[in-house]
Amino acid sequence: MSNLAPSLTAARQLADEYPNHKVTLLLLTDFQLFDADINRVLTDIATFPGDVHAVVLGGTQVDGLMDERVQITKATYTDPPGTVARAIFASLVNHRPGARPI
């Protein structure tokens, strides 16, 4: 169960404070959203001023739910060890010149 609105607000404020920086929003959630306004949350994700990578935990279906600009990695208990770590690392090095995720 997730409540993303407060975290999205904080991430947006941080990104707005550094307009000359490349930013990546990394979401790790099951997307079983319990926010009061789910449409607003999805809009905030889609309009984030930078790259967005959603790591969907547990197999929740998000096909057609997320904006096409959002990179999605699905991770379930049947995935090999390191699936989530590789997704996180890929987001961390996304804007680093010459860096390549493993």
Rank of each mutant, 00 (worst) to 15 (best):
M1H: 11
N3I: 09
N3P: 03
P6C: 11
S7D: 12
L8G: 04
T9Q: 14
T9E: 10
T9D: 12
A10I: 10
A11T: 05
L14K: 14
A15H: 07
A15V: 12
E17G: 04
H21Q: 13
K22S: 10
V23F: 03
L25E: 08
L26Y: 12
L26E: 09
T29R: 05
Q32K: 11
F34A: 13
D35G: 03
D35M: 07
A36M: 09
D37Y: 02
N39W: 01
R40L: 11
R40K: 15
R40N: 14
R40I: 04
V41P: 02
D44W: 00
I45H: 03
A46Y: 03
P49M: 06
D51R: 09
D51K: 02
T60R: 10
T60K: 05
L65A: 07
M66A: 10
R69E: 01
R69G: 00
R69K: 15
V70M: 07
I72A: 01
T73L: 05
T73C: 08
A75G: 06
T76Y: 06
T76A: 08
T78M: 06
P80S: 11
P80V: 13
P80A: 14
P80K: 14
T83W: 01
A87W: 09
I88E: 14
F89E: 15
F89C: 13
S91Y: 02
S91F: 04
V93T: 14
N94C: 04
H95G: 08
H95S: 13
R96H: 10
P97F: 06
G98H: 11
G98K: 15
A99H: 09
R100C: 03
I102Q: 14
I102A: 05
